[in-house]
Design a protein around this nucleic acid. Structure first.
Length: 492
DNA sequence: TACAAACCTG
DNA sequence: CAGGTTTGTA
């Protein structure tokens, strides 16, 4: 294809990028249709052939769909766009809305099916790491009723059911979020063409889908960023019509990534680079997100490098190069899939600690449905809880020793109430804002732990280097269920 | 020896 | 809180 170089051609290109709006929306529609087909497939699979692995099949279909779309989009790409009256933008929005709604209806159907299945109590849950695997392992034939896993605790099938339910709900939430996210991202891409002012299109699509309030910048960002070009971009927050790449695309790629991260998660978050991994096969966005980041360095001028990626029907790719405003907006307001852990997630995790000291990675996935899990995110969450435990046990040991110094002789005299200094320390750590009612059960667990430490130290067991292990073994059995409310992505 | 959890440090 | 190290298991 000829490379336009003069200003007239530049203008033509701009115009074309305006006009491609319609075409791009079509690919959103197609994307949604693929999603819809997938959900329908699952429902059909549940109704008709209980043993069929509907998930896997529809996954294959999705792949096929993607491949086909890739071809088609490549073709479309070269065709000149016909003039599209601006009034049709509203129609497009409405179409998309309708598609979303119909998908939601389908999901509700699916949900009903699931609860029906639940009532029948016929299911089998295999404890797998991935929620998707778990979904595909669902069996609906009643013949395997006796295969429901029974745990030593005695309430095994209940637990398995609960777990399964959680997983399914989680899957639903994800699917909806993904779809909604898809639309948002696609639209925000159009909202932020690097070369346009707030044209009618932008206004329209905003009005269509944007019900959030204005963005808020909650933290100062500039301290970490040194490069003049970058700090400029930050201090003059989110100029409406310019991308940072325009202002300083000479800045190294790494800085752009850091900047993007800072905007999303604030200066105190961690920058977590994840290599593409085997499990990104199931979640193509991960490896592709990386690839797009790699190419986002030279965006200002050469859009062509992106086209093939964008055509893969994975719209968020282009967002990587979208303007900072929409990125910041999304990270601050959007209830959709997150690419990293935010301070709110940390807050939520701390509150969850009141219920569970030893969460499985599965539980974490279920309770952070708005988080896009990968190895890095998972280990970060695990690490958080590890840190929580560390603090917890340090306090326990400290207060147990203090009790002994204070002359307490009987374990029965060791207790933990809301008035205890120990509780105050814990509450300060996990519930600093003190806006959460700590469950009584946590006080019981704390008390048991304190007593365990007390008696162990009293019996001089602490001479053994691994004396705490016995205590951990007791405490890890005292986890309780985390309330359902915590599953809401917008819990905090 | 590979992995998870505890442990230590800043 | 996160990075690095050690320890304990399988």
């Amino acid at each position: 294809e000829p490379e336009p170089s003069n200003s007239a051609d530049d203008f033509a290109r701009e115009e074309q990028s305006c006009l491609s709006f319609k075409d791009e929306d079509l690919s959103v529609s197609e994307h949604l249709q693929a999603k819809r087909a997938r959900v329908e497939n699952i429902i059909r699979g549940m109704a008709a052939s209980p043993n069929a692995d509907g998930e896997a099949e529809s996954e294959c279909e999705a792949v096929r769909c993607r491949r086909d779309l890739l071809k088609e989009n490549k073709r479309k790409q070269r065709l000149p766009q016909h003039q599209e009256p601006k009034t049709s933008k509203d129609e497009e929005c409405h179409k998309l809305k309708e598609q979303l709604q119909s998908m939601q209806r389908l999901l509700h159907q699916l949900q009903e099916k699931i609860s029906h299945v639940h009532d029948q109590n016929y299911s089998e849950s295999e404890e797998r790491e991935d929620a998707r695997s778990e979904l595909s392992s669902l069996r609906l034939d009643g013949g395997h009723k006796d295969r429901v896993k029974v745990e030593p605790g005695g309430f095994g099938s209940d637990r398995a059911m609960k777990n399964l339910k959680e997983t399914l709900k989680c899957e639903l939430t994800r699917t909806v979020s993904e779809s909604v996210d898809t639309v948002f991202k696609k639209l925000s891409t159009k909202d932020s063409p690097s070369d346009l002012s707030d044209s009618e299109e932008n206004v329209n699509s905003r009005h269509c889908f944007e019900s959030h309030g204005p963005e808020h910048q909650t933290e100062a960002l500039s301290l970490v960023v040194r490069k003049p070009s970058l700090s400029q971009a930050v201090k003059r927050p989110f100029p409406l019509h310019q991308t940072p790449f325009q202002m300083g695309y000479s800045a190294p790629l790494h800085d752009s990534q850091i900047l993007e991260h800072l905007l999303k998660y604030g200066p105190h978050s961690t920058f977590c680079l994840e290599r593409s991994s085997p499990d990104s096969v199931e979640r193509p966005w991960e490896s592709l997100a990386m690839r797009s980041k790699l190419s986002s360095g030279h965006l200002g001028q050469h859009q062509t490098g992106l086209v093939s990626v964008d055509a893969l029907c994975l719209p968020h790719i282009k967002m990587e190069c979208g303007d900072l405003q929409s990125m910041a907006e999304r990270s601050l307001n959007s209830p959709h899939i997150q690419e990293g852990l935010t301070p709110n997630h940390l807050k939520k995790a701390k509150l969850m600690f009141f219920y569970t000291r030893y969460p499985s990675s599965n539980l974490l996935k279920n309770f952070f449905p708005d988080v896009k899990f990968n190895r890095c995110i998972t280990s970060q969450l695990i690490k958080w809880f590890s840190n929580f435990r560390e603090f917890f046990y340090i306090q326990m040991e400290k207060f147990a020793r203090q009790a002994i110094i204070d002359g307490v002789n009987d374990v029965k005299d060791v207790s933990v109430t809301r008035e205890s200094e120990l509780f105050r320390a814990l509450n300060m750590h996990y519930n600093k804002a003190n806006d959460f009612q700590v469950p009584d059960r946590f006080l019981e667990v704390a008390e048991v732990t304190l007593q365990e430490f007390f008696s162990a130290i009293s019996l001089s067991k602490d001479s053994d280097p691994s004396w705490k292990k016995a205590i951990y073994k007791v405490i890890c059995k005292l986890d309780s269920d985390v309330p359902e409310d915590f599953k809401s992505p917008s819990y905090l």
